[in-house]
Every structure is written in structure tokens, then in C-alpha cells.
């Protein structure tokens, strides 16, 4: 129980944000209308994805310095879970964009950036498949993971700020929190973010433990 408190917290926070997100009052804004509630679901997906990729890079660095196969497993399972959250983020975003901007895929630097980031991590998985020997696979994919990460940061944080974007907070648009988020929305939003990040980490630890068990079973044979 002592170790599981954060899993309970994740479940409580996610359900609280779902209930609070659908039932609570939202500011009435033109165009956005009720779709503003999507901010509770769309934005946390990206935060979770970035957190998972960050965990993956940290464990790739740890793997290079320690050589423990467990670290490599954590890195790859974080990427696997991160890709799921990336697709969820794209899905919720495309729905939202279809309603507010009129097309599911407008030419927006954040959209393109996230799509390219997905390509980067899919390439990471392809690279892993191309290498047979386990230690070599772990080491070389860790190198690629670390090599790609700073460019990912440029892609997601620096480039959108330099160009015009439909997203808030970039290219001269004002931030969400400045105009739209009133005092009721903010706590719900942060609850959702924390809840989803914890859920993402939980999923990846589950996957990691399954992989550990599989490895154990394979060694007995």
C-alpha cells in the first residue's frame, strides 16, 4: 500500500478531472464554445508523452553508463507508452481542430512537429528491430535516443515559438492561461495533467514488469 499511493492518486485525479471537466462551468467563448473542455484531455496527453520520452532518455543515459538491461527495458517501454499517448493527443487534437479551425490537419508547426516526433520514435523502434544481438541493440538504440532528443526539444518547443501557429502561446498568440482559463478551469486542468502523467508512468511500469517476467520465463527454458 505504501508504494501504491500514487496509482490511487492517478485514478482519483483522472476520474476527478473527467467529472469536473464535463460537469463544471466553462467560460462562454466564441468558436470554442463547449469544446474548450477538450483542453482537459488534449493537452495532458502531450504533457504525458513528453514526460515519458524524458524518462526514456534518462534511462538511455543510465543504460550507457551502467549497462544494466533493466534500464534499456524501461527506456523502450516508456517510448512504447509515449507513442500511444502521442496518438491519443493527435486524435483529440484532430477532432478539436476539425470543429474550431475547420480542418483536421491545418498546416500548423505544432501539429507537424508532433507528427515528426512520432516518426522519430517509430524510427527508434524500427532501429531496435533491425538489430538482433541484445546488448548491441540496447546500446545503439540508446545512442540514437539520446542523439534525437535535443532535436525533438527544438522541434516541439523552439520552432513553434518562431513561426505563426494556431495554437495558443506561440507566434504572437496569447497564452491559454492569460485569457481563457478562469479560476475554475485551472485546478481541473492541473489535476488532469498530473493524473494523466501518473497514469502514463503506471502503464509503462506495468509493461516493464511484464517484460521482466517474460525475460525470466525465457531464461528458464
Amino acid at each position: 500500500m505504501r508504494k501504491n499511493w500514487w496509482k490511487i492518486l492517478a485514478a482519483v485525479f483522472v476520474s476527478a478531472s473527467v467529472i469536473g471537466g464535463f460537469m463544471g462551468p466553462v467560460p462562454v467563448l466564441p468558436i470554442l464554445n463547449e469544446t474548450i473542455r477538450n483542453v482537459y484531455f488534449h493537452v495532458p496527453m502531450w504533457f504525458t508523452m513528453i514526460t515519458l520520452y524524458l524518462i526514456s532518455v534518462i534511462y538511455s543515459i543510465k543504460y550507457l553508463s551502467s549497462g544494466k538491461p533493466e534500464h534499456d527495458l524501461i527506456a523502450v517501454e516508456s517510448v512504447n507508452t509515449g507513442i500511444i499517448f502521442c496518438f491519443l493527443g493527435l486524435l483529440t487534437g484532430m477532432q478539436w481542430a476539425n470543429i474550431t479551425w475547420g480542418a483536421p490537419w491545418p498546416n500548423d508547426p505544432k501539429l507537424n512537429g508532433s507528427a515528426i516526433a512520432t516518426l522519430m520514435y517509430l524510427a527508434y523502434l524500427v532501429l531496435r528491430n533491425a538489430l538482433d544481438e541484445e546488448q548491441k541493440r540496447a546500446r545503439i538504440s540508446a545512442v540514437y535516443n539520446i542523439f534525437a532528443f535535443p532535436i525533438l526539444v527544438v522541434l516541439i518547443y523552439i520552432l513553434p515559438k518562431m513561426t505563426d501557429s494556431l495554437h495558443p502561446g506561440s507566434g504572437g498568440n496569447s497564452n491559454f492561461s492569460e485569457i481563457d482559463m478562469d479560476n475554475y478551469m485551472r485546478p481541473v486542468f492541473y489535476t488532469a495533467v498530473v493524473g494523466w502523467i501518473l497514469t502514463g508512468v503506471w502503464i509503462s511500469t506495468l509493461r516493464y514488469r511484464i517484460r521482466l517476467l517474460e525475460n525470466k520465463a525465457n531464461k528458464i527454458d
Binding site: 515528426i116 516526433a117 516518426l119 524510427a123 524500427v126 533491425a130 540514437y144 542523439f147 534525437a148 532535436i151
Partner: peptide, 13 residues
């Protein structure tokens, strides 16, 4: 593999 690995990394540049 070269193309797959290189394209996503070079696109921001």
C-alpha cells in the same frame, strides 16, 4: 535504415 533514422532528425533543420 539510414533514411528512416535521418529524415525525422533533419526535418527541423
Amino acid at each position: 535504415i539510414m533514411a528512416i533514422l535521418a529524415f525525422p532528425v533533419i526535418i527541423p533543420l
